[in-house]
Design a protein around this nucleic acid. Structure first.
Lengths: 347, 347
DNA sequence: CTGAAAGCGCTAACAA
DNA sequence: TTGTTAGCGCTTTCAG
């Protein structure tokens, strides 16, 4: 069984290629009888339309480019899953590239996507990216662009869209919850503040304390690697240094929270009675710790979906000759209260 | 700055499109001087080659199709990561689709990939797929095809390649290790045997026992959902039913192992002293449990890489007019001994 | 070393 | 309702 082209079908049916094309596209200018004939033969010969040719001719590839730092861990696979699902729903295919957190690869992949004529690009920045000229170029040339999670702050208010999570809000909610549970000396394990996620969570922590008339005690704030070991280390430090241990720990991510929890338990503290613990991200393992870890869900999949919707919107508006309508979406995170911070019965 | 085509470049340089094309492809039949001129102007005008057109002309898209059940959880993201990385290394781009475990979507996506002229397809079956006619068709038409992890058994020995993990071997190793640790009454928590992963692990368990002159006690084999709850349930059942608890549990996956471990600890058994525990898959959380869980690493990324290599090989051999050379690769899993099963000091 | 010509497979004016 | 024509942007014979 050979590959047949549309032209081939046309010949066999004594029709012109255009008619066949229209028939297959179900144009209403074609007689029902002809459509039947065409479809029948197409099925018989197992005709496979060549999307490349159609895309070339139309000037529209029907493909969206996706550029993520990597497809590992918890967050990005989920987002990519959301992107792929929503793109498919909107009738697009996706071409996915990884920058491997490398600015060079990021540049190359952007090129690659362009050469493949993607209609728009969804990007989360590599963490080594300083020079953003490659994105600036895309922006100027009007390539529809949506950043998600790791965004270029400078592009706010330009013809570029973005989807981010409200980390500040998430952290604020955690602390408010801990206060409601009766905690008064809430420690915070933060990552480096040059990363916006940690900066925002840190700020949310501070503001929530102040809003509840609690002092911000700098001794309760520890900067540490956001890993299990880092969290463990930080907890040990607090237990060693302070006259009395804190009554809660809010870590900027789940791994650090687990580390803290483990050390606390080894030190004889009961969780949550003596020490309430909360993390951030809703990693899979948060329902496997003992006790289960209170955390903040980021709605990763929703982020992917929103990003695609934004992009598709932009594509429509540009197609209608109007200016593309960039927008910034800030997703609300969801506090998940679990055993590790629950001292009082739920309402 | 408008989009410029190769033809446009040619006009501006008073050259023919063919020469420009050759210059950009760095053919050695073009004078160095001309190459310079072409490259210079291309850069100045920010020329972006149209891959679609090139692909159409060449009859080679440079794209590989990937079809996975989903991009969530632990396993598939890792494999996809491996695929994307290796494909990029081999000069291909990837088009990724999800079947969402649905046979219908699987069929549609296969179509989609074909229409996009992918040069070959990497597939892991949806678990609802019974009718495999869509793959049979690909096979007959000579579309290069590589299955990974969830394969079509019927295709063994045909012009289709496959990459699978040696589950049997992995299970065997686990049990051999447990025996070496002094365990004699090793329980096994298995999933449904119609899934090959569980069937093979189960068989590995049995054979390893026999090989070490231990009896296979059917009372120690429990079929349960391979979830934390399932594992917990199974453990409770054993503790309730048996006159004496087993001295080890090997669960067919990590979640079930965690459930078993938790119940055992609650029942006052020490892990690993009274009960050694081992799982399968090397999920992220296995280094977060207390104690850390002994498990089997599947080399997910390696699987992706192998699959791509196999496909690329097939592409080469077909290109050289020779018959494609399908191969079956069986990856060796790696036993990771951790605290949950370690009773004796390491060698 | 360079150019002319043809065409990959499809779609979309414009005609009939 | 159907056909004619042209061409998307590129590569690749084949000639010069």
């Amino acid at each position: 069984m050979q590959r047949v082209s549309l032209t081939e079908l046309a010949k066999r049916l004594n029709l012109s290629p255009s008619t066949v094309s229209r028939a297959l596209a179900d144009h209403n200018e074609v007689s029902e009888a002809t459509k039947q004939r065409v479809r029948q033969l197409a099925r018989e010969l197992n005709y496979q339309p060549n999307q490349l040719a159609a895309a070339l001719r139309r000037g529209r590839s029907g493909t969206l480019g996706v550029l993520v730092p990597h497809i590992t861990g918890h967050f990005f696979p989920q987002v990519v899953h959301g992107i792929a699902t929503e793109a498919s729903r909107a009738g697009f295919t996706v071409m996915i590239c990884q920058s491997n957190e490398d600015a060079q690869q990021e540049r190359r992949n952007i090129e690659l996507l362009r050469h493949n004529q993607v209609e728009g690009i969804l990007v989360s920045l590599a963490n080594t990216t300083q020079d953003i000229s490659h994105f600036e170029e895309l922006r100027q040339q009007g390539v529809p662009l949506v950043f998600f999670d790791r965004v270029v702050e400078d592009f706010r208010g330009t013809n570029v869209s973005a989807v981010v999570l409200d980390d500040y809000q998430g952290a604020y909610q955690v602390v408010a919850h801990l206060v409601a549970q009766g905690c008064r000396r809430i420690a915070h394990f933060s990552g480096p503040l040059h990363l916006s996620i940690h900066k925002n969570r840190h700020q949310g922590y501070r503001d929530a304390l102040l809003a509840h008339n609690l002092p911000v005690d700098e001794d309760l704030i520890v900067f540490c690697p956001q890993t299990q070991a880092g969290g463990a280390e930080a907890m040990q430090q607090l237990l060693r240094t302070l006259p009395a241990p804190p009554d809660a720990v809010f870590a900027s991510n789940d791994l650090a929270a687990v580390g803290a929890m483990r050390v606390a338990k080894q030190a004889g503290l009961r969780v949550p009675e003596d020490l309430a613990v909360a993390g951030f991200s809703n990693e899979t393992f948060t329902t496997l710790t003992e006790p289960n870890l209170t955390t903040v869900d980021q709605g990763c999949e929703t982020m992917g979906i929103s990003a695609v919707r934004l992009l598709v919107q932009m594509l429509h508006t540009t197609a209608e000759q109007r200016k593309p309508q960039p927008r910034n979406v800030v997703l609300k995170p969801q506090l998940l209260v679990r055993e590790s911070s629950l001292r009082k019965p739920r309402d």
